[in-house]
Design a protein around this nucleic acid. Structure first.
Length: 316
DNA sequence: AGTTGTTTATTCAGAG
DNA sequence: CTCTGAATAAACAACT
């Protein structure tokens, strides 16, 4: 049992699965995406247990990244040198965890083949194109449209209360029955969490941070209401509400396929209204679908190929 | 060479 | 007991 008051799991295995740990790491990043090495680092920084037997657990972790559809691989742009791709959470990864338990998920998040081809493409368009637009334009859009599915493809709509399918990381699961109490303005929490990385009401951040005490909070963007003592994150604790605006790195955002973009650090800050929660703006599904041409059964290629094409097309 | 990513197989544990 | 998810090992390919 963890010793209260101390560095609870300092030398014991944390009660989190690799999926949870990975999700925490990704969530902790401002870009909602991390390269493998940074995921390692996050885990090792926070959980001393994982500073040993690195070969073993890192292999397992890589296995999880590849094996689980809840993780998506985002290729680096040519101007983003480095090893490996970025890893992010699938926007529709659903509520994977049982209430309070991060050792075992409720169910495995699995993208069905058909959906894999169509839905995932579109969702990635949303996910990245939206972020791109939001970043680029700095234009806040209404919360309501994000929730109601306005501007969304039908694929997204099942993820509302009517389907019973809930949302990423299970804030609803995490906070259990209480989530109903923190509904804001009638916005389903599930929908609010649909697009990871969006501002979340401060009540949630407290709850989340209480559920993942090691992390402090699961999402740096939710940290506005949490004291800065949680700044032990391995990522910069620049939060969306520490200032009226937030700097959003352009890293995950496919701008142009050209290699002429300066390094992220050199890109002038792009700002976004802190209180906004933009709905994904579907421009057009001009995404090439090489997946359709691929032989079945290669979900990994699907991830990469699809994402890559999305990035290119959404940036066109 | 080392890292990253994929895949297969096995074992174990929890839930129903 | 069965099913399913998680952990682990291992082999291998691709990439930097």
């Amino acid at each position: 049992m963890p010793r209260p008051g101390k560095n609870s799991y300092s030398d014991q295995k944390p009660p989190y699965s690799y999926i949870s740990l990975t999700a925490m790491a990704i969530q902790s990043s401002t870009e909602k995406m991390l390269p493998l090495s940074d995921i390692y680092k996050f885990i090792m920084d926070r959980f001393p247990y994982y500073r040993e037997n690195t070969q073993r657990w890192q292999n397992s972790l890589r296995h999880n990244l590849s094996f689980n559809d809840c993780f998506i691989k985002i290729p680096r742009r040519p101007d983003q040198p480095g090893k490996g791709s970025f890893w992010a959470l699938h926007p529709d990864c659903g509520d994977m965890f049982e209430n309070g338990s991060f050792l075992r998920r409720r169910k495995r998040f699995k993208v069905h083949r058909a959906e894999h081809l169509a839905s995932k493409n579109h969702q990635m368009i949303h996910y990245f194109h939206h972020q791109h637009n939001q970043t680029k334009l700095g234009v806040p859009t209404s919360d309501a449209s994000a929730v109601t599915g306005i501007g969304r493809l039908p694929h997204f709509q099942p993820y509302n209360q009517s389907s019973g399918f809930k949302h990423p990381f299970a804030i609803e699961n995490i906070i259990g029955r209480d989530y109903k109490g923190v509904m804001t303005s009638g916005l389903p929490l599930a929908s609010m969490m649909h697009h990871l990385g969006y501002p979340v009401p401060s009540q949630l951040s407290n709850m989340v941070s209480s559920m993942w005490p090691h992390v402090g909070m699961m999402d740096s963007m939710t940290s506005m209401a949490v004291s800065q003592e949680y700044g032990h994150f391995g990522v910069p604790m620049k939060t969306i509400c520490h200032a009226p605006t937030q700097t959003i790195p352009a890293v995950p955002v496919p701008i142009k396929p050209t290699a002429s973009l300066p390094p992220v650090s050199a890109i002038p800050s792009l700002t976004v209204n802190a209180s906004s929660m933009c709905p994904p703006t579907v421009t057009q599904a001009t995404v090439a679908t090489p997946l359709l041409e691929q032989p079945s059964g290669n979900h990994s290629d699907s991830k990469t190929g699809m994402l890559h094409s999305v990035l290119i097309h959404s940036s066109a």
